[in-house]
Design a protein around this nucleic acid. Sequence first.
RNA 1: CGCGGGGUGGAGCAGCGGCAGCUCGCGUGGCUCAUAACCACGAGGUCGCAGGUUCGAGUCCUGCCCCCGCAACCA
Length: 480
Amino acid sequence: MSKYYVTTSIPYVNADPHIGFAMELLYADVLARAARQRGDDVIFSTGTDEHGGKIAEKAAELKLTPKAYSDQISAKFAELTEELNISNDRFIRTTDKGHEQRAQVVWKALKKDIYKGKYTGWYCTGEETFFTETEVKANNGVCPYHERPYEQIEEENYFFKLSAYGPKIQAAIESGEFEIVPETRRNEILAVIKKGLDDISVSRPKDKISWGIPVPGDSKQVMYVWFEALLNYITVLGYPEYKDFKEFWPASAQVIGKDIIRFHAAIWPAILLGLGLPLPKQLYVHGFITVEGKKISKSLGNVIAPKEIIDKYGVDAFRYFFLRHIPSYEDGDFSWERLTAAYNNELANELGNAVSRTAAMITKYQNGLIGDIPEAEHDVAQYEEALAACRFDRALDEVWEQTRGLNQYIDEEKPWELAKAKDDDHLREVLAYQAGALLQIAELLVPFLPDTAAKIQGVFKEGIVRPLDGTLFPKEDADK
RNA sequence: CGCGGGGUGGAGCAGCGGCAGCUCGCGUGGCUCAUAACCACGAGGUCGCAGGUUCGAGUCCUGCCCCCGCAACCA
């Protein structure tokens, strides 16, 4: 049995979950469910990233300890996986003791690539953070919020020898050993790597940021949160000694958003190479979602909680919209209008109605007896190709192609006329074909719309129609 | 000269050298098994602008315009 390990990125707990991360969970979930359907042994992991200065600040504002604050937000992400019917096997938090301990083990194992150095940067004492060269220039050297000049200060940090690994990472990407999809993202990161990677600081002084994992052997430093967060992908498997790690690493697929590609396609592979570990087989980079054409932002007030959509349309409608109507390789737009259109036309009218008209005819003409259901015969090559390339939108296009084909078939064969003409044999054949087509459609939907797939299978699988309680995708309820 | 993505009928997209295509929406017709659902046909595009290459260009090249992201210590 092959092993399949898939991860999402772990979101930072400085804000409530929004639809962008919900989509990422869906992508990974489809990969996981498809692998299970193939018979693979699967581990699917997600979780939350909880250390760092921002979390400490946020917690302080709310008069909570960082841990208590993280507990609250992390719980919301865990809830989100329930709401979305995500089939993750693990949910790691970077504040888990196991992660903290194993992160320190990694640090020690990377010792040869870590050195102490000085970080020099522009600092605003009002803001207590560093700013980039470009930002400083853009503000003419004066912090706009505190109206005082940026100071150039030095800070002692540990650095990781990222610069040493560029060529190896490049080779792995170019050979396909470490596959990055889509190709534009692959090209993008290759360009960055070819320019040369600088070493990165991987720790901060503890007196500046205390909410982090201590650096082994140096009580004055904590690990830079991003460095440590990346390690979750192996600590969750029990790096270095636990059997899951030995069996499931390297990851089959890692799903991330386009904003963090550098971390996952440059820094992370360098860490792995430093540890002498193989790189993930596939890195799938998705785009961003806008709402009504605008970037999601709190100041615009257009943040939509996934639950809001799920409560109104149901979890499979949510899954359907984001998997099919947000382009898998690009940015996409959510709007209530587009969601409603997809729900009514595609889910209710095309698929839902195909199920109910088929079930109704079998019940009416044959007392629910389906008879021998022929093996599905539709070519699924395109579907499988799309799935392998993480083109979830295209894969669903294929399924709807079949659904439309079924509706055409029904109109051509006109079973109601066969019934009137008492052409029982032909009628039986046609209706059994319809049931078979729907069972195949259900099979293809398993990774995408698990509940819907199960419902359709429930109706036809037994050879006798077992009518649904109500309908798939009821339309009136959608408007409440 | 920072980097990248994109501009194709009302909307969302595909096509990336050989008669401009798909879904939704719109119009007309058909059907009645079905969630007023389904099926067929039709209207609608100077493929961002301007040059060039070619027998032939959304499709290749050059320049320009417009939109959207990202710009290394912020996790």
